[in-house]
Amino acid sequence: MNEFIFFINKVVISGSVIGSIYAMGAIGVTLVFAILRFAHFAHGDLMTLGAFFSYILVVLFPEAGSFIGLPTGFVMLPIAMALTAIVAILLDRSFYRPLRQNNVKPVVMVMASIGVTLMIQGLIRVFAGPSSRNFFFAERKDIFRIELPFELASRKIVVTEPQLLLFVFITVAVISLHLFLTRSRLGKAMRAMSDNPDLSRVSGINTTMVVWTTWIIAGSLAAAAGTLLSLDVTLKPDLSFNILLPIFAAAIVGGVGHPYGAIAGGFVVGFAETLSVFNWAIFLRPFRDSLPDWIDLPNKLAFVPTEYKITVPFVILVVILIWRPTGIFKGQVL
């Protein structure tokens, strides 16, 4: 029973947490892919930037959280989201739009986004230094330990407050996004542009508005993902690079251009990660006594050692590219 609880903690909860983070990042990436038709490599850094905005706000107003009863980082999140959205729009106007107007190949846009990544990374580290920071320097992180009523269960299910807030947030975000895309005019315009940009422009859709909206959604979700991840662990400046690959894998797995696919993809990648580093030998332990002596149970039976965790999203990516490049929801490929 304990093993099962261990599994829930290490795989289900961890997988859902990281899956939600990937999902939020992937939504932004897939929207930019769909509307602006290039792979936005600077997305990881938007996440870091958003997290840093939250952090700075927490430093400036450390008491705000206890005032409301939630972690300060979370309280500052909406402001950070807005700031990141504005930065995203500014980046587009300064760097991406001029290139779009010159009708460059999508690959050049990707290169430009790498340039932007390096700029943001450099600036963040110049001003904030390369060390990691903890959001909870002025308050305590609430940890909930849930005890199960089963007899053999001496372990407890562990969930932290930031994690719960993450789940709440992503549910609200997904529902709002869904309503926006299906009910509002702007949302429908976005779907039209994703399908056929030239036709959309000719049909009188305000493409600039759609582009801005794309960056607002992408930027705010990125900020949320970055902040919530940093609330869960710590804020590290190299958060961006490590998370880029899983987010892209998630977007491609789900089908490029499909926000719901991005969500599904995020969870697929997240769970794949936790499942592959999980030590499955744990499940064999209760049977150790009942097995004959000559069978030696391996102590550690994980598909992937923890140091190689980064290979998991990449392997998923390769598998999808070979097996089904359009992804689960049949998105754009070429």
Partner: peptide, 28 residues
């Protein structure tokens, strides 16, 4: 700050990024 040297080197990262975007924009 104690890690000034490390931060100074990060400025190079920024410059490289800026160079990429500028070259792509003005002298592709």
């Amino acid at each position: 700050p104690t890690d000034l040297a490390a931060r100074a080197l990060q400025m190079r990262v920024f410059i490289i990024g800026l160079t990429i975007t500028l070259v792509l924009r003005y002298a592709p």
